[in-house]
Amino acid sequence: MIKLIKDETNHLLIEVTASEANLENADAFKSQVIELLNTHNKSLVIDLNKVEYIDSSFLGALVAILKHAITIKKEVVLVNLKKDVKDLLLLIRLDKVFKIYDNYKEALSHL
């Protein structure tokens, strides 16, 4: 479900490996990422390049992760969103609460 790509001083870069981010994997994703946040106590860059589609359950998991990160004073940044995924986030205005960048390099300059 997730792959740890980089463990840097102030953040982790993880990749979501599923192409369909939905009800089937939302709970597992949330648990795994919250465990990573608790273990490493670092901000998180989530690379969604492999995700073709995301549903409301997975969006709920992302929001739960963001809330958890805020409580431990860390950030959650989303990168490499495909058009349908980005359009859905824009539709429900989650771009107002998540930091979203085109790619990891761009995110780095804001972390």
């Binding site: 709920g60 929001v63 609460v97």
Partner: peptide, 15 residues
């Protein structure tokens, strides 16, 4: 954005 913690986590009907 201080009330981020109040954001709903169930988006189905809204979508």
């Amino acid at each position: 954005t201080s009330s981020i913690n109040d954001i709903i986590e169930h988006f189905g009907l809204l979508i």
